[in-house]
Design a protein around this nucleic acid. Structure first.
Lengths: 343, 343
DNA sequence: TTTAGCACTCTCGCCTTGAGAGTGCTAAAA
DNA sequence: TTTTAGCACTCTCAAGGCGAGAGTGCTAAA
């Protein structure tokens, strides 16, 4: 499908106008609004062609045109110009990051907040996560009785904390010794290697190693780290969401962690750090997302630690701006992650 | 204001019916629906009295009655019977808790999820938080270069992790020694006591202590720990939220952490563990909550660690059931917290 | 190839209208 | 004194009719 420049222009303008107004766009109003150097009849003819190509759609005879999902896809794939964010926006965002506490959690929260505010939509950010869990450090802290707090640090800075119940009370001194022992023994080891070390410790050490192995396996099996959401309410004022129940179901995907993990696993996990993926109208697969689009990116260090960020909004979304924002925030996070967390 | 038994009955029935249907309730339909042993005219007279008391309201002449906020308050204060949850519901909930991973974070998430599902509304759970920050354990883990991961454990099990930049690179060995030193020296101390210890260490130790003190001060100043939300989408299908923009603003309060902290600070912080507070229609103070009610409770150990849980839904909320649920979940959490986290 | 002109279509807001639900009042019954 | 039947009145809401407005497609001329 090869479009003439004029057809591209008209498609672009219709999408712009529709994004602005959420209404079907007519030929006459389009010519007037943008002072086009052609008559409305010409525009009508072109619209007719674009409708044949299934890039536009008429809600009913004698209404204006609305872009189809295919139309948006063509737009995003071919017509969006990579504007990049205005310099002062970039500066504001960067500034916020360097002003916040130096803490990965704060950064991720901030990233979610920035995405939500800049795009006026819902945003999600997953914590960086390594495909392979490599042990770094173990800490055991007595609380009381047989309850012990286990803090596990992985290469890359992922931290997991968990209460464990030992079969009998153990003093903090003994716990510290064991933790140091295990830390020394296992540093830079993966699950398999650690499994083979079970024989090298006493009974208590074995118990702890078992729990450690279970935990590391669990981490390795999960596809993402912690998920941060923001801006869910932004999207509620959009007419699509205010009206249809269906659109609201999309927010349910964000809330239900398992659904969201599935979605991420089958989309963004395949793209490269630095790349952008745009999911328009659920792409036929995701029923709940039929009225939504998602702009996704991956950040981090491709070989070790990666995470995802994304923006969820109505299909009628200002893609150019959103894509720029997502790309920029992904880059900022990549920088922060490789600077502070790399192995 | 003293109501006769019959007036109380009628008020209760109207509230029940209105909660069910979200519509104004008329005298005739009420008599028919509940097979009342009186005529609709009698009901009308009583309704008229209740309207004079401002417990009921007419949306317009010749419409049925709707409970006022005052009406709901009277209902919650005087007429709600403490039914308690059905035994099998209690069992299901308890079961879920003891089946989940033994991990405070999982419990809190689960609590939010249970509240949201049981009440079909939005829920919030804050992590247990001590008024006074008491040091328990410090861990320093080298990442690379001058970046160090600091893990701070407080009495009660609150854990904070943060990246810090030292002025020069330090080996993991030295970091471990310093961490052990500080851990020994400061265990069971509060911020003031630790501040006075700054002289007892070398330059590096001083730097770390400073950061430690700053962090503990920050923790002490904050009113709540981490906040877990769930079920935001539940509430979106209620007519109040589907229609008015105003109701949707209420969800914004949940999203904006600072707003939520304010709200909690000025309400639930004052009630005792085991007590329940019901905020109806924002109580005149919280504009954004005018169309919502919140049922709040505190859990934990009154003297040391406490957190809040709550449910946010439309004013038209099944208070008896919601209150029972919130109370029950608060008790479960209290048990878990005192069992595993107490000093 | 573009454009002016025209007949035609469809939505949307506005109005009217009638049914339905509910109220308050009054006078009779308990 | 309290309760109830009866009745006139009020207000909403859904349905139908109507006209204005916006938009389309087609045709013939520029």
């Amino acid at each position: 499908m090869q479009l003439t420049d004029r057809q591209k222009l008209i498609l672009t303008l219709i999408i712009h106008e529709h994004i602005r107004t959420a209404q079907p766009v007519g030929s006459k109003s389009l010519v007037e609004k943008y002072n086009l150097a052609m008559s409305s009849a010409t525009v009508r003819n072109e619209m007719s062609v674009l409708t044949d190509y299934e890039l536009l759609r008429q809600p009913h005879t004698s209404a204006g045109r609305v872009p189809t999902e295919e139309g948006y896809r063509f737009f995003v794939g071919n017509l969006v110009q990579q504007s990049g964010l205005p310099t002062n926006t970039r500066r504001t965002i960067t500034h916020q990051f360097y002003q916040s506490r130096q803490d990965i959690e704060q950064w991720l929260r901030l990233a979610a907040s920035v995405l939500a505010n800049q795009s006026q939509a819902a945003s999600l950010v997953t914590a960086p996560h390594a495909e392979k869990a490599i042990f770094k450090h173990l800490e055991l802290i007595a609380t009381r009785g047989r309850q012990v707090l286990m803090v596990l640090v992985l290469m890359g800075g992922e931290i997991r904390q968990q209460f464990i119940s030992l079969s009998e009370p153990v003093s903090q001194e003994r716990l510290s010794v064991i933790a140091a022992q295990i830390s020394n023994m296992c540093v830079r080891c993966d699950v398999e290697k650690i499994s083979r070390m079970r024989t090298q410790t006493d009974a208590l050490g074995k118990d702890i190693l078992d729990i450690l192995i279970a935990e590391m396996t669990l981490i390795e099996e999960s596809t993402t780290g912690e998920i941060y959401l923001d801006g869910m309410t932004n999207v509620l004022s959009e007419p699509e969401f205010a009206e249809s129940d269906e659109a609201r179901q999309a927010l349910h995907i964000l809330e239900e962690r398992s659904l969201l993990e599935n979605l991420l696993a089958s989309t963004v996990m395949n793209i490269d750090v630095g790349g952008i993926q745009v999911l328009i109208g659920g792409e036929g697969t995701w029923q709940e997302l039929r009225q939504c689009s998602i702009v996704l990116a991956r950040y981090g260090d491709p070989d070790t630690l990666t995470g995802s960020i994304g923006v969820l909004g109505p299909i009628r979304m200002p893609y150019d701006r959103t894509i720029s924002t997502v790309r920029f925030v992904a880059n900022v996070l990549s920088d922060l992650v490789t600077e502070t967390l790399a192995v």
